[in-house]
Design a binder for these strands. Sequence first.
DNA 1: GTCTATAGCGTGATAGAC
DNA 2: GTCTATCACGCTATAGAC
Lengths: 227, 227
Amino acid sequence: MPRAARETDSRTAILDAAEELFSERGFGAVALREIARAAGLNVGSLTYHFGDKAGILEAIYKRHTNPMNARRLELIGEAKRIEDRDQRLMAILRAYVLPAFSSSGDLVGGGTRFTRVRAILSAEGNAQARAIIADAFDTTTRSFIDAIAECVTGAAREDIVWRSQFLLGSLYYTLINPERISRLSDGRADGGDHDEAIRQIVLSSHASFRALARTSGTPAGELEHSA
Amino acid sequence: MPRAARETDSRTAILDAAEELFSERGFGAVALREIARAAGLNVGSLTYHFGDKAGILEAIYKRHTNPMNARRLELIGEAKRIEDRDQRLMAILRAYVLPAFSSSGDLVGGGTRFTRVRAILSAEGNAQARAIIADAFDTTTRSFIDAIAECVTGAAREDIVWRSQFLLGSLYYTLINPERISRLSDGRADGGDHDEAIRQIVLSSHASFRALARTSGTPAGELEHSA
DNA sequence: GTCTATAGCGTGATAGAC
DNA sequence: GTCTATCACGCTATAGAC
């Protein structure tokens, strides 16, 4: 067993390499040998440090979830102090989206890469991976839903849950398939532009959530059309 | 080579089995042996009919894309005849979402299953799979974007593209991870309820698109907040 | 048209030298 | 702590019997 407290250079080299490969092709499709080669180490070294392949994924999760959740809660806390409901809602949405894109902790560009890992893993349905993913973010997501509910008075809790699912789906799919945006816009938009992606997701979901409010000056007629 | 025109029982049995397995675990993680077992046939039979593993995926795409696109264009055509812009927008969104869930052609429940295959494959990043996916839906998607643009006057094309990306991401993620909705709503919503999913996606994206309109009675202030 | 048998390769994980 | 060597297994794809 390696010393748990200290992160050696090899350990982080392995995690960095694995994270990059997982973010591109998922968990199952990546071979330990590839990770070893990318990290400049031998296969035996990986299993020495992390036991098995799933152990590597677990370590990747461990180093990201805490900083990312902390950053989210911090930003949500700030956002909650805004009085105007619309602006507060906007700030809350940014608090959720921003840490998924920007760097988490000391890791350069780690946020985006890790979020892409999560996006791919959520689709892959791998049993080992599923066990590791399991509710690493549920608690934070619930705080997030609570904060939204306070901005969107009179909305049913279920509706907010559905739309927060759509928010996460939007975020994931944008990270997975950014070329589609560039292509369908004939180059007028760049799907790989993270700042723009954040802006678009926040604005779009803001409109989606605000339409749930029963009070305030929303134009009537969204609910119970033919759909 | 098998007769191209006629679909034998074995062929459809193979495609059905493969489609089910792909929709659960993606392309790479499914072994030919599993498909053969589920179809009640031998491995050799699969390669006889479809050449190789990618050939099976290709055949699955072939039997779905045309019917699904046709249904979408038909529904968009109907929707375009609606005069009221809000109601037309709603109908157009339904025209896009509905065929992704409901059965396509004669295939029972085929739409949902096939859409789940597409969702997983889009995330998987497999090279062979990517080649088959490539713009099987781009033409229809462009008609869809055009139709929305007519409802949302004054909106920038790029913004519509971004939000249609979010629509697809919402749809995919809901099919991939429906349990998350049930869990986060504490059982008050059922993520696996397709009719409700359609309704929620349509309403949510309707609000998102409508907010882009510069004319009409939209409440001011969505654009250019802090974001 | 479907089967069995097998080739040829790549995989995750381990044992033991250094 | 990192290496080489190796095990046992699973994979896709093919060849050829029936």
